[in-house]
Amino acid sequence: MFTAALNSLTADHKTAVETQLSAWDAGTCPKWRRVAVNIREEVALQPRDFTALLTDFATELVSAAVSPESGWVKACRQNQFRGAAMPPPLPTHLGRAVPIGNYAAIISDSPSVTLTPDVCEQMLRDIHLAGGTPTPREARILQQARLGRYVMWAAFDATHPNQSPFDYIPRTTDAVRTALGLGECRETVTFILMTYQSTGTGAPDPLHRPTIGEAANYCWYRPNPDAAAHHGLTEPLSPNPLGLAPVPEVVHREINGDTLTFPLYLAV
């Protein structure tokens, strides 16, 4: 797919893209080497969408207004949600693992909330200490706040699509980072494990198969090699002593927490 898209570019654009990918291949940064591999291995984009993404990237490269890395990120932002929309039956429950400080900042940043990030983080910890089920007031705050920003990545359990994916992953930072392939995550990170429903008012619609367009410079993304699949797959990190299986993943647009389910878990 990559080759077909590359070949459909103008000669200048094709050269610019090939040269940049080769530079990443030969560079010292393993992260950008991996991004270059991901671009070549992506099979979830329609040919015209792949061409559009590479054209935008080449345009950035040729203009040289920003660094090639920033140019790639910029091009990706213009080409998000191009992966196929997931057809029914949808998994009813989706899950997200978010560092607690980040979720607190997202809640605090939500228009309906007037609590500082520190207060929001303390609230999340209080909920956890109380067993994970918020009081009605806490629940309303969480439901009216955003669940994520811009592009939201969500996981689900293919075998038990009506349950939280975190019901089948040990709720520890190590297990969560391993299963979801979160390679930048240190063991000291505290995650909030949130589960929300994919149906009902405020639910995400549609769910898309993720592509390099959403991943951009996130080098821990792995293109699902199955072109016909309706979702992506994480690549568990080594050494994976528990033998955790790859987790199906989708992306969707920003939503509020209307369909959040409780309890809310912390992974430490």
């Binding site: 890395e69 990120v73 560092p99 980040n102 979160l182």
Partner: peptide, 22 residues
Amino acid sequence: ESALRAQVPLPTIVPDEMPEAP
């Protein structure tokens, strides 16, 4: 400034992490 405007790549734990976190 570019990093905080999310214009340069940052090593985020999750793809949609806020730029100041990394």
